[in-house]
């Protein structure tokens, strides 16, 4: 699925990521890596292997799209440092050709040195690329003509059909000048957003993204 925002072509990927071919840029929001280990450290038996899918998916995306740069739209790592950070660092090491940037979110509370150590640039607040402004939380004031691409919300949508059927799916969500990404991480929840005429919703199915 492809859309154009602020004159830029944006591909909406079913892997819950954005690809901007003009900038060779891959954008991912709310990975919440390290969450399984965070729970395990506290004695809660979250199966450790549950994190593995996220890493597999990252590899697949990097290899398929071969981006020059990757933006993480905040909440990359779930709170305190744990051993999964090293695992993530090793993954980044395998892609020396990609520049990785983190736009800091509320869960990103590691030390600056820990980000540096794995070669991740950290940006506070927002990062502007032409008329696209990347931020973790949706901005309250957006300059005219610009589009704010944000995460944080974990948007989901409910589709209703005949026979009281309903489907709840993660989605990309465009409302006015704000464009929200679904959460990438597997261990995350959904926040169902309502729809109206002014919003465009793109639901994420296993194999494709569809406008609804």
């Amino acid at each position: 699925m492809e859309i154009t925002l602020a004159g830029t072509i944006i591909q909406l990927l079913p892997q819950k990521a954005l690809f901007l071919p003009e900038h060779s840029l891959l954008v991912l929001g709310d990975l919440h890596l390290g969450k399984a280990m965070h729970f395990r450290k506290a004695g809660i038996f979250m199966p450790a292997a549950s994190a593995a899918d996220d890493y597999t998916m990252l590899h697949r995306l990097f290899q398929t799209y071969q981006p020059r740069q990757v933006f993480f739209l905040g909440d990359l790592f779930h709170s305190l440092h744990n051993s999964e950070w090293q695992q993530f660092g090793q993954l980044l090491d395998q892609y020396p050709g990609i520049s990785f940037t983190l736009i800091r979110g509320n869960h990103d509370i590691l030390k600056d040195s820990e980000y540096r150590q794995i070669g991740l640039q950290v940006v506070e607040g927002a990062l502007r690329l032409g008329d696209l402004i990347f931020a973790h939380e949706p901005m309250t004031e957006i300059p005219e003509g610009a589009i704010n691409i944000a995460g944080h919300i974990h948007p989901g949508c409910v589709l209703r059909g005949l026979g009281r059927q309903s489907l709840t799916l993660p989605c990309f969500y465009l409302s006015g000048q704000t464009f929200l990404l679904p959460a990438f991480g597997r261990l995350t929840g959904l926040h169902v957003l309502s729809r109206d005429r002014a919003t465009s919703v793109f639901a994420v199915l296993p194999e494709r993204v569809v406008a609804v």
Partner: peptide, 19 residues
């Protein structure tokens, strides 16, 4: 096993801690 290593999965970097 569940209370000492959080189930059957145990990997080198695991930090499970309870009992």
């Amino acid at each position: 096993l569940m209370i000492i290593q959080g189930g059957r999965m145990l990997e080198a970097y695991d930090e499970f801690h309870k009992v």
